[in-house]
Amino acid sequence: MSDGLHPAVVSAQPSQRDEKNPDAPLFEGEYQDRLEKILSRYPFKRAALLPVLNMAQQVRGWISPDTIKRVAEILELSPAYVRSVASFYTMFQLRPAGKYLIQVCTGIGCDLCGAEDVVEGLLKATGTRIGETSADGKYTVVEVECLAGCGFPTMVQINDRMYENVKAEDVEGLLKELD
Protein backbone atom coordinates (compact mmCIF):
# COMPACT_ATOMS: atom_id res chain seq x y z
CA MET A 1 0.00 0.00 0.00
CA SER A 2 1.33 3.42 -0.95
CA ASP A 3 1.49 6.71 0.93
CA GLY A 4 2.62 5.11 4.17
CA LEU A 5 -0.69 3.36 4.72
CA HIS A 6 -0.17 -0.13 5.98
CA PRO A 7 -2.99 -2.56 5.91
CA ALA A 8 -2.38 -4.26 9.22
CA VAL A 9 -4.93 -6.95 9.58
CA VAL A 10 -6.77 -8.26 6.59
CA SER A 11 -9.83 -10.05 7.70
CA ALA A 12 -10.36 -13.59 6.56
CA GLN A 13 -13.85 -12.57 5.59
CA PRO A 14 -13.83 -9.22 3.80
CA SER A 15 -17.08 -7.53 4.70
CA GLN A 16 -18.09 -4.99 2.13
CA ARG A 17 -21.37 -3.72 3.45
CA ASP A 18 -23.07 -3.53 0.09
CA GLU A 19 -22.54 -7.20 -0.45
CA LYS A 20 -24.67 -8.00 2.51
CA ASN A 21 -28.36 -8.50 2.28
CA PRO A 22 -29.93 -6.87 5.33
CA ASP A 23 -32.79 -9.36 5.07
CA ALA A 24 -30.60 -12.41 4.57
CA PRO A 25 -31.86 -15.45 6.43
CA LEU A 26 -30.20 -15.68 9.83
CA PHE A 27 -29.03 -18.89 11.41
CA GLU A 28 -29.68 -21.08 8.40
CA GLY A 29 -27.48 -23.52 6.54
CA GLU A 30 -23.87 -23.18 7.60
CA TYR A 31 -24.87 -20.49 10.05
CA GLN A 32 -27.21 -22.88 11.76
CA ASP A 33 -24.25 -25.15 12.38
CA ARG A 34 -22.16 -22.28 13.61
CA LEU A 35 -24.92 -21.18 15.96
CA GLU A 36 -25.11 -24.64 17.45
CA LYS A 37 -21.37 -24.73 17.85
CA ILE A 38 -21.38 -21.37 19.60
CA LEU A 39 -24.19 -22.41 21.92
CA SER A 40 -22.41 -25.63 22.82
CA ARG A 41 -19.46 -23.62 24.08
CA TYR A 42 -21.33 -21.78 26.84
CA PRO A 43 -22.97 -22.94 30.04
CA PHE A 44 -26.13 -20.90 29.38
CA LYS A 45 -27.65 -19.17 26.41
CA ARG A 46 -27.21 -15.60 27.55
CA ALA A 47 -23.44 -16.07 27.55
CA ALA A 48 -23.52 -16.65 23.79
CA LEU A 49 -24.95 -13.21 23.08
CA LEU A 50 -21.80 -11.52 21.77
CA PRO A 51 -20.68 -14.23 19.33
CA VAL A 52 -24.24 -14.64 18.08
CA LEU A 53 -24.58 -10.91 17.48
CA ASN A 54 -21.25 -10.95 15.75
CA MET A 55 -22.36 -13.70 13.44
CA ALA A 56 -25.65 -11.93 12.71
CA GLN A 57 -23.76 -8.80 11.76
CA GLN A 58 -21.54 -10.78 9.44
CA VAL A 59 -24.59 -12.20 7.69
CA ARG A 60 -26.67 -9.06 7.46
CA GLY A 61 -24.14 -6.26 7.59
CA TRP A 62 -25.75 -4.54 10.54
CA ILE A 63 -27.85 -5.27 13.62
CA SER A 64 -31.38 -4.31 12.66
CA PRO A 65 -34.34 -4.28 15.06
CA ASP A 66 -35.47 -7.46 13.35
CA THR A 67 -32.09 -9.06 13.98
CA ILE A 68 -32.31 -8.03 17.62
CA LYS A 69 -35.69 -9.69 17.97
CA ARG A 70 -34.49 -12.88 16.34
CA VAL A 71 -31.39 -13.05 18.53
CA ALA A 72 -33.52 -12.36 21.61
CA GLU A 73 -35.84 -15.19 20.68
CA ILE A 74 -33.06 -17.66 20.13
CA LEU A 75 -31.25 -16.79 23.34
CA GLU A 76 -34.43 -16.33 25.39
CA LEU A 77 -33.64 -12.74 26.32
CA SER A 78 -35.73 -9.59 26.13
CA PRO A 79 -35.19 -7.65 22.89
CA ALA A 80 -34.46 -4.53 24.90
CA TYR A 81 -31.65 -6.33 26.69
CA VAL A 82 -30.12 -7.47 23.40
CA ARG A 83 -30.27 -3.91 22.08
CA SER A 84 -28.66 -2.69 25.30
CA VAL A 85 -25.73 -5.07 24.98
CA ALA A 86 -25.33 -4.46 21.24
CA SER A 87 -25.28 -0.70 21.83
CA PHE A 88 -22.56 -1.02 24.47
CA TYR A 89 -20.03 -2.12 21.84
CA THR A 90 -19.13 0.20 19.01
CA MET A 91 -18.27 -2.84 16.90
CA PHE A 92 -21.96 -3.50 16.43
CA GLN A 93 -23.64 -1.37 13.82
CA LEU A 94 -27.13 -0.47 14.96
CA ARG A 95 -27.76 1.51 11.80
CA PRO A 96 -27.10 0.54 8.21
CA ALA A 97 -23.77 2.01 7.13
CA GLY A 98 -22.51 3.02 3.68
CA LYS A 99 -20.43 0.79 1.46
CA TYR A 100 -17.37 1.82 3.44
CA LEU A 101 -17.72 2.02 7.18
CA ILE A 102 -14.86 4.20 8.31
CA GLN A 103 -14.11 3.89 12.02
CA VAL A 104 -11.65 6.39 13.38
CA CYS A 105 -10.13 5.80 16.76
CA THR A 106 -10.50 8.79 19.03
CA GLY A 107 -9.23 6.95 22.08
CA ILE A 108 -6.74 8.76 24.23
CA GLY A 109 -3.62 7.63 22.30
CA CYS A 110 -4.87 8.52 18.84
CA ASP A 111 -6.59 11.64 20.09
CA LEU A 112 -3.34 13.03 21.42
CA CYS A 113 -1.77 12.40 18.01
CA GLY A 114 -4.33 14.27 15.96
CA ALA A 115 -7.32 11.94 15.56
CA GLU A 116 -9.65 14.93 15.61
CA ASP A 117 -7.99 16.27 12.46
CA VAL A 118 -8.34 12.90 10.75
CA VAL A 119 -12.03 12.82 11.62
CA GLU A 120 -12.49 16.33 10.36
CA GLY A 121 -10.64 15.56 7.14
CA LEU A 122 -12.74 12.46 6.53
CA LEU A 123 -15.98 14.28 7.16
CA LYS A 124 -14.98 17.03 4.79
CA ALA A 125 -13.84 14.63 2.08
CA THR A 126 -16.98 12.52 2.33
CA GLY A 127 -19.36 15.42 2.88
CA THR A 128 -21.01 13.82 5.87
CA ARG A 129 -21.44 14.30 9.58
CA ILE A 130 -20.51 11.75 12.24
CA GLY A 131 -22.62 8.63 11.87
CA GLU A 132 -24.33 9.80 8.68
CA THR A 133 -24.04 8.02 5.36
CA SER A 134 -22.99 10.12 2.38
CA ALA A 135 -25.60 10.86 -0.28
CA ASP A 136 -24.03 8.39 -2.73
CA GLY A 137 -24.35 5.67 -0.11
CA LYS A 138 -20.61 5.12 -0.05
CA TYR A 139 -19.21 6.40 3.22
CA THR A 140 -20.12 6.38 6.88
CA VAL A 141 -17.62 7.89 9.31
CA VAL A 142 -17.82 7.05 13.00
CA GLU A 143 -15.61 7.60 16.02
CA VAL A 144 -14.60 4.60 18.10
CA GLU A 145 -12.62 4.11 21.26
CA CYS A 146 -9.25 2.38 20.90
CA LEU A 147 -8.73 -0.03 18.03
CA ALA A 148 -5.95 -1.69 19.98
CA GLY A 149 -3.20 -0.26 17.85
CA CYS A 150 -2.22 2.60 20.12
CA GLY A 151 1.39 2.43 18.95
CA PHE A 152 0.35 3.47 15.47
CA PRO A 153 -1.88 6.47 15.89
CA THR A 154 -4.20 7.39 14.37
CA MET A 155 -5.80 4.01 13.80
CA VAL A 156 -8.54 3.84 11.20
CA GLN A 157 -10.59 0.79 10.36
CA ILE A 158 -12.43 0.64 7.04
CA ASN A 159 -14.78 -2.29 6.95
CA ASP A 160 -12.54 -5.11 8.12
CA ARG A 161 -9.25 -3.54 7.16
CA MET A 162 -7.02 -1.62 9.57
CA TYR A 163 -4.89 1.39 8.63
CA GLU A 164 -2.07 2.61 10.84
CA ASN A 165 -0.47 6.00 11.29
CA VAL A 166 -3.17 7.87 9.42
CA LYS A 167 -2.61 11.64 9.28
CA ALA A 168 -5.07 14.26 8.16
CA GLU A 169 -3.18 14.69 4.91
CA ASP A 170 -3.51 10.93 4.17
CA VAL A 171 -7.25 11.11 3.96
CA GLU A 172 -7.56 11.86 0.29
CA GLY A 173 -5.25 9.04 -0.79
CA LEU A 174 -6.97 6.70 1.58
CA LEU A 175 -10.38 7.28 0.05
CA LYS A 176 -9.01 6.98 -3.47
CA GLU A 177 -7.48 3.66 -2.51
CA LEU A 178 -10.93 2.31 -1.78
CA ASP A 179 -12.42 2.69 -5.20
Partner: peptide, 19 residues
Protein backbone atom coordinates in the same frame (compact mmCIF):
# COMPACT_ATOMS: atom_id res chain seq x y z
CA UNK B 1 -41.72 -6.31 32.26
CA UNK B 2 -38.08 -5.67 31.31
CA UNK B 3 -38.72 -2.95 28.76
CA UNK B 4 -36.17 -0.40 29.95
CA UNK B 5 -32.46 -0.78 29.38
CA UNK B 6 -29.30 1.28 29.21
CA UNK B 7 -28.34 2.08 25.63
CA UNK B 8 -24.72 2.87 24.73
CA UNK B 9 -22.13 3.26 27.44
CA UNK B 10 -20.25 5.80 29.45
CA UNK B 11 -21.19 9.41 29.04
CA UNK B 12 -23.26 8.63 25.95
CA UNK B 13 -25.40 6.17 27.86
CA UNK B 14 -29.11 6.71 28.23
CA UNK B 15 -32.25 4.82 29.16
CA UNK B 16 -34.57 3.59 26.44
CA UNK B 17 -36.91 0.83 25.33
CA UNK B 18 -36.28 -1.72 22.60
CA UNK B 19 -36.89 0.55 19.62
Amino acid sequence: DPVLVVINRGQRGYIDTMT
